[in-house]
Simulated assay, not measured.
Amino acid sequence: MPAPRTPSVSARRRALLGGVTSGRGALLRVRVAVGALVAVIVIGTVGYVVLGFTPLEAMYQTVTTVATVGFREVRPLGAAGMVFTMVLILLGVGTVLYNLGVLVEAVTEGHLREHLERRRMDQRISDLSGHIIICGYGRVGRASAAHLLATGHAVVVIDSDPERLVGVEVPHLVGDALVDDTLREAGIARARALIAALEQDADTVYLTLSARALRPDLVIVARARTVDSKAKLQLAGATRAVNPQLIGGRRMASFALYPDVAEFLDVVMHDEELDYRIEQVRVPEGSPLAGQSVGQVDVSGRSGAQLLAVRMPSRGHFVPNPPPATVVEAGATLIVFGDPGQVRALRELVGTPQGGAG
């Protein structure tokens, strides 16, 4: 007996689009039903005006007729008026019943509630700026979101599987991250970074290409499921390509060889309750520190943060424990160790906005 086949990515996308189309179709039916009711009222009002009613009398007569409340006629009706009223009753009752059916269907199936929730979520996302977009809410995406939220950063999650997003309180979108419109809805134009954690490397490469085309300056961190795909993701435009299995294996080896060092770095980088952090601070163009030597900058003395390394734009690589004579270039990245107050003082010293990552 053949093993059951797992639905393909394209099949899941078709199912997702089918659900979205169904929701939009229900809302469209509501609009059509309401529009038809308005049209019947307008036609009835115009008809009664032609029969000699005033506009107010005509609208009153139309509403009472369509609603079948049984009030008497505002004015006596001739033969033409009686025929028109019968036609209006048939049209009006049919339209009202159709409206009731459509509204009951939309309410019972949850389409209206979903639409209102989607509107609120879209508003929350449109208010965000400097947030991080996480595409794919599997194990890697959830872990990334949890750490970012714990450290006070705004997050928008995109996933094509609505089951993964049930009960998720953070701003999120049920959609295909490979579609440019979905990335635009997630606020990619205002985002600080994007984390691509999709199930397939081919999808991650496509997402990276799309995101890079939409935002050439965006920081893109892509999850690579294989070692070979890292190079492809970087060629596609990823700022960093990360293989969780490779990193996990190296961390396990580090704990085996240097347990105290590995634990210290793990606590400093990932323990949200610890005040001290290893942070990066970019030296912008026009900074008062640009062009000065490390000895003149005196990061520790002026801010309290410890300077661990520096990366110069002209060199590209890190210079650990830089000598005092090392000249800090504009655009350099300082890797420092300190508490939030010390890092904040250093950002003010170099002229970097709060929250700037560099």
Rank of each mutant, 00 (worst) to 15 (best):
P4Q: 14
A15D: 14
G18T: 03
T21F: 09
R29G: 03
A33E: 00
V38C: 02
V40E: 00
I41P: 04
I43A: 10
L51Y: 03
G52P: 02
T54C: 02
P55Q: 00
Y60K: 09
Q61D: 05
V63N: 00
T64W: 00
A67R: 10
T68G: 14
T68N: 15
R75C: 04
M86F: 12
G92V: 01
V93K: 12
L97W: 01
N99A: 13
V107H: 05
E109K: 12
R118F: 05
M121S: 15
D122G: 14
D122M: 14
D127M: 12
G130E: 05
I132M: 06
I133K: 10
R139H: 07
R142E: 15
A145L: 07
H147R: 13
A150E: 15
D159G: 11
D159N: 12
H172Q: 11
L173E: 13
D176A: 02
D176G: 01
T182N: 04
R184G: 09
A186F: 14
A193S: 09
A197M: 02
L209P: 10
L209N: 07
S210Q: 12
A211Y: 05
A213D: 14
D217E: 12
D217N: 11
L218I: 10
I220D: 07
A224W: 00
R225C: 07
S229P: 06
S229D: 08
Q234M: 12
Q234F: 06
A238G: 10
R240K: 07
R240P: 08
N243E: 04
G248Y: 01
G249F: 01
M252Q: 15
A253R: 04
A253M: 02
S254Q: 13
V261D: 11
A262Q: 07
F264D: 07
D271V: 09
L274Y: 10
D275H: 08
G286S: 06
G291P: 08
Q292I: 09
S293A: 03
V294Y: 04
G295F: 06
Q296L: 07
Q296H: 08
S300W: 13
G301R: 12
L307T: 03
L308N: 01
V310C: 02
M312K: 14
M312G: 09
R315V: 08
G316P: 14
G316C: 00
H317T: 13
P320V: 10
N321A: 10
V328S: 02
E329P: 08
F337L: 14
P340F: 04
G341N: 06
R344Q: 09
A345I: 05
L349K: 02
G351N: 02
G351H: 05
P353Y: 00
G358H: 02
